[in-house]
Simulated assay, not measured.
Amino acid sequence: MTRLTGRALRLTVFVGESDLWHHRPLSTEIVHRAHHAGLAGASVFHGVEGFGASSIVHTSRLLSLSEDLPVAVVIVDDEARIRGFLPELDELVGEGLVILDEVEVIRYVGRKSDHAGRKGDR
């Protein structure tokens, strides 16, 4: 069981949904590398509208038919582990924004292999 409480660092990587790494989504590669590095967890959030350095607004509205919506990959772990992961991002992220925030984690408990405690299992 993994437990992370107290002060931590949140790493957020903003990229475009069309950004690729060796023919697969860049967000997928970041998540897989974070998993391989043993980080506490990672989530990918797909935006419905946004713009970045190019100042072009990308939106999911039907008339716009944008193919490069914003994507945020969020990872939270202790500071040393997050900072140790940054060189991976140097290799992966050519264009994008990386943000580090100090956060306070109330509770994180890893799943048990038998999925005990899930709703419906009680």
Rank of each mutant, 00 (worst) to 15 (best):
D121T: 09
S55L: 06
H23K: 11
L11S: 07
L11P: 12
L62W: 03
L9F: 06
A8Q: 08
G84E: 06
G38N: 08
S60V: 09
G47R: 12
L39K: 04
A37H: 03
V103A: 00
S55G: 13
M1F: 09
V93S: 13
D68Y: 12
E95T: 14
G38E: 08
V15Y: 05
S113Y: 07
V13K: 07
V71R: 00
A8H: 13
V48H: 11
A42R: 03
V76I: 15
V13N: 09
G110I: 00
V73A: 10
H115Q: 11
V57I: 15
E67D: 14
V109N: 11
G52P: 15
S54V: 06
L4V: 12
D19F: 10
P87G: 07
G117S: 12
F51V: 00
A34D: 00
G16L: 01
G94R: 12
I82E: 03
R111M: 07
V15K: 07
T59C: 01
L20N: 06
L86W: 05
R61N: 10
I99S: 13
R61K: 10
V44A: 11
S66N: 10
T2Y: 01
V93Y: 07
L65I: 05
T5C: 11
V13C: 13
V44L: 08
D19S: 14
R83M: 04
E88H: 06
K119M: 02
E49K: 01
P70R: 10
S113V: 13
S27H: 15
S64K: 03
A8E: 10
V48W: 05
L20Y: 08
E91G: 01
D19P: 05
L26V: 10
P87Y: 02
D114E: 13
G50D: 07
H115F: 14
P70L: 13
S27Y: 06
G94K: 10
V13W: 02
L69G: 11
D78H: 13
L69K: 02
G117F: 10
T12Q: 15
G117A: 10
P70W: 04
E104Y: 09
L69W: 04
R107G: 12
G94E: 04
P25E: 11
G50Y: 05
L89D: 08
V44Y: 03
R107A: 14
A80P: 00
A8V: 11
S64L: 01
V73C: 12
G6R: 12
L86G: 08
D121K: 03
H22P: 00
R7Y: 09
T59A: 07
H23W: 05
I56E: 13
E91C: 05
V73L: 06
G38Q: 01
I56C: 12
